[in-house]
Design a protein around this nucleic acid. Structure first.
Length: 362
DNA sequence: GACGCGTGGCG
DNA sequence: TCGCCAAGCGT
């Protein structure tokens, strides 16, 4: 009885998916899929890592850029880490880029440049967790893996009206997904569930009237789909303060440094800053600057990270004698676009030098 | 299990 | 305006 019901779910969902197929750069065309082709594992893996906690819109240009520059996983494995970090700059969660490089190196060195085709073997690679291993196994290798991301969690908790709070409900959700994942077209099933969550079963104001499950959904029967999934209240975001120093020499070069490989913005490039503390220690001007100079205040920029809000006072000084710094390097302003500068650093530099960066096109 | 970890878009 | 949050992973 239950098996018959779930088969019905699959038909509803895959029917909807075939009618609403989204043309994304990492997917193969429906005619190719109909011929039994699967997407390139390298493309699937690269897109899935980029899509971790990141919107399709933001990922598209980065995916195209990476694929054009490093057409195969071996090309990526052989690339200089600094170039990979610079190409990732702006996309966020930079540990993903560090692990992306490590994963490519592992595939090249330990798997002959060929991605392993099982969920378990994929799960052992750097940066590949429960979600990504299942997604790559299902989408690239046609494995019957239970793919659970934030979209699927939302769809499943609504479909079955699961009232257990997150993240405690994850095992139950995984079990439900495993129960309804078909042996036939598991990759399409996974992508259909995620597309449904992204376009119909949205966090706010879901379009239930258009949903293929609207005759089955228990949360809709309760007239409260927005109530699912149940989540615990979040903590308040603390504020941290600091100062950033835009140092320019007489050749129009700016002083840059590389951050430690671990932690916040790990491995990325920055301008000199003070520590980011919960209160102002000293006046955050000349005393905390990287060198003595005629520092001029340029205003304050605010940047919100995952777990705190940062307010940076920006200072600028010109015509500095370059050898007065004993760490970092002096980079011509014309080369700023090619640096591994995270968005918060671009904001600080732009505050002091409005025309520092070339606007992105497309 | 809880926390650290970016960014940009949207209502 | 501003809080929410998006195809999670590592520790």
């Amino acid at each position: 009885m239950r098996h018959v019901k779930m088969t019905y779910h699959n038909k509803l969902l895959l029917g909807w998916y075939d009618r609403h197929h989204r043309d994304l750069p990492w997917r193969i065309s429906p005619p190719m899929a109909a011929r039994g082709q699967s997407a390139d594992p390298y493309h699937v893996w690269l897109s899935e890592v980029m899509l971790q906690q990141t919107t399709v819109q933001a990922v598209k240009p980065y995916f195209q850029k990476f694929l054009a520059r490093w057409p195969t996983v071996v090309d990526l494995a052989n690339a200089p880490t600094e170039e990979v970090m610079a190409a990732w700059a702006g996309l966020g969660y930079y540990a993903r880029a560090r692990n992306l490089k490590k994963c490519a190196e592992a595939v090249a060195a330990d798997h002959n440049g060929i991605f392993p085709d099982t969920e378990e073997a994929l799960r052992a690679l750097p940066g590949i967790g429960d979600y990504t291993s299942a997604a790559v196994a299902a989408i690239a290798f046609n494995r019957q893996a239970a793919v659970v991301d934030g979209n699927v969690e939302r769809v499943i908790t609504r479909l079955f009206a699961i009232t257990d709070a997150m993240p405690g409900a994850k095992p139950l959700i995984k079990a439900k997904v495993a129960m309804i994942t078909p042996k036939d077209r598991p990759g399409d099933f996974a992508q259909a569930m995620m597309d449904l969550g992204a376009t119909i079963c949205t966090p706010k104001r879901p379009a239930c009237v258009l949903c293929p499950f609207n005759g089955e959904c228990l949360a809709l029967k309760l007239h409260d789909p927005e109530h699912f999934p149940v989540k615990a209240a979040k903590k308040a975001k603390p504020v941290r303060l600091g100062a950033a120093y835009i140092a320019l020499d007489d050749q129009n070069r700016i002083l840059l440094r590389k951050r430690e490989d671990k932690g916040l913005l790990g491995g990325m490039t920055e301008v000199p800053t003070t520590e980011w503390t919960s209160r102002i220690d000293g006046d955050h001007t000349d005393a905390s600057a990287p060198m003595a100079a005629d520092w001029r205040a340029c205003g304050v920029i605010t940047h919100v990270f995952t777990h705190f809000e940062l307010r940076l006072s920006v200072f600028r000084a010109d015509n500095i004698t370059a050898n007065t710094s004993n760490h970092g390097w002096w980079e011509p302003l014309a080369n700023l676009d090619a640096q591994a500068l995270p968005t918060v650093m671009k904001k600080a530099i732009t505050q002091a030098i409005p025309q520092a960066f070339t606007p992105e096109k497309g």
